[in-house]
Nucleic acid binder design. Sequence first.
DNA 1: CTCCCCCATGTAACCGTTTCCACTATCGCG
DNA 2: CGCGATAGTGGAAACGGTTACATGGGGGAG
Lengths: 356, 356
Amino acid sequence: MPRVRNHPFAGPLTPPSSMAVTIRDVARASGFSVATVSRVLNGSGPVKPETVRKVRDAATRLRFTPNVAARSLSTSRTHTLGVLLPDLHGEFFSEVIRGIDQTAQSHGYHVLVSSSHNSPAEIAAALATMRGRVDGVAIMSPVSNAEALVADLPRSIPLVLLNCSADVAGVDTLDIDNHGGAYAMTRHLLTLGRRRIAFVRGPKGNADGEARLGGYRAALEDAGVVHDRTLELDGDFQELSGYHAAKHLLSMSPRPDALFAANDSMAIGAISALREAGVRVPEDVAVVGFDDIPIARYILPALSTVRVDIAKLGARAVKVLLHAVGHRNEHTRVRETFATELVVRASCGVEQAVGR
Amino acid sequence: MPRVRNHPFAGPLTPPSSMAVTIRDVARASGFSVATVSRVLNGSGPVKPETVRKVRDAATRLRFTPNVAARSLSTSRTHTLGVLLPDLHGEFFSEVIRGIDQTAQSHGYHVLVSSSHNSPAEIAAALATMRGRVDGVAIMSPVSNAEALVADLPRSIPLVLLNCSADVAGVDTLDIDNHGGAYAMTRHLLTLGRRRIAFVRGPKGNADGEARLGGYRAALEDAGVVHDRTLELDGDFQELSGYHAAKHLLSMSPRPDALFAANDSMAIGAISALREAGVRVPEDVAVVGFDDIPIARYILPALSTVRVDIAKLGARAVKVLLHAVGHRNEHTRVRETFATELVVRASCGVEQAVGR
DNA sequence: CTCCCCCATGTAACCGTTTCCACTATCGCG
DNA sequence: CGCGATAGTGGAAACGGTTACATGGGGGAG
């Protein structure tokens, strides 16, 4: 609502508080022009030290805060980054946000989040509403066919794809080595003598889940173990689905001697079901997970898993985005894969294996 | 950087893509003035249906997206809400964001998050950088003396305090009934015959932790149980501190017969330590927590706890903020307390109690 | 038939910055 | 001493919307 004439208070009084103090007020108070004030406050252009002092003085005295809307209208920079996240589980969610936020903060940027997007269409819609509010967007998509996703995304704004395992030209992508981690864990179980290893999958169409499944299959194949597809059980990354998968496993014969859940939450649900049924973990059935969430080491038996530094992923995403922003999105694209780390605790049956 | 003269493309060609299409382009293409276009697009003012159609047509044909900076410069509304969070644990963090984001999205608002603020000074600083970027801010502060916090916060912008247990005039506040929940749980343990109940505290100065401690003490006092302050152990809401607290508990004599951790994470850490030492839970020591995080029901024994609907708290916060925004922050302030719910599972020893 | 009101639309001021360009004073150099 | 470069500053356009006010035309009341 314009129309309210600019207030011409001149003295060193505090402003009417009803209306914010503008750069013009600072100019008036310091005796210089708005152009000079702007130059001082942004450190652009040449200004006399004496002038700098006076302007700074006036600005702090009047408690001047630049209007961000006006600034970004003029510069078309918002100093804000967007984050698009799927509907994901606790630890993962908070870690990635934390990593992103801390790095963004340290570079003077803000973070606009938008969660619970599960389809490419939702992502595209959310991205559209973010248009003009952000200088760049980090997208974590659960869908495995990220190529389709990226196809109808605008290319004008810097984008970084997190964990989409997409091989798309023209977009920066950061991935977690899901395949390698699952491969290593499966191999570990084989080394310990387990032969019938069941797997609890992630949600249908989830890229992480599928890559982990792929690593599991590859390890079995490389070890020459014939693979039985009925050992691949459905899951959705929630505890309950792990619980159900384990119940189902108990009805199979011959009964598997190990269970690899595509994430820790499901592994915990599975352990719960097994022990409820009087099955010993890891003696009878070894159980392992993926992610290394904090509680993993405190459940009994302590969960063997694959560690993923998700906060680091978020932090790196911000750096990539800021680089893109700095080069007006005309930089050479980045494609990185984050290593995972095998974490051996008790639930995989290392100690039992010695005696075998 | 102004100076680039407005591009005068007239035909139905796609715009140069280097520069975004503005409301003026839509005006030109539809044959009406910018005022009318604005009115159509915002549904303000009277317009002929025929005109609406034509303008809408042109807008979609040109793929017009209003420039948010320009809009908010003019209206001084950003359609964005800020969220200031402390350095908090996984589930809690993600749930509150989820609740806030979903509600905000459904009202056409965006969410700007800023995490890891632990002192009033940090909060004030973060709030300052958010100035002009948001229409309102939800603040969750860990500090127990929220009065001091609010004292030097600007009152011009709508604020809602989450879970600060502050009794401050002029600010909306939403709280969780920590005291009541802890009271109920302690009472429950007493009912089951437990007499020496230890408590693992939250971080120093944490309001939630202190309120829970208060509920615990009150229940003991009301039951006429003499209270031994050495039963109150230090903790910081992390699993490890629960682990250590339990280790310490084992060295006490007479040994407590119950342990109430101020949150679930610490309870899980404690159970881990107890079982490692060969102590039976709940037969020898009952263990209970607070929060009801998802894993609580899947650990063994399933954790008895106090449920808190944290997503609902976030959702409510958004509604309160939007109300304040709608009334230009001149509304009657709200002060609500969210009820908690006792969740009885196995770890408190309900079943054992029958046989006692 | 006249007057008045309201519907539909246009014109232009305004929001608060940034930055281009113009201008002056000072200085180094031939 | 003349001349170009440069430091220091100011004026004003531009960013892209919203909206107060002006304008014109049509219809109902008297």
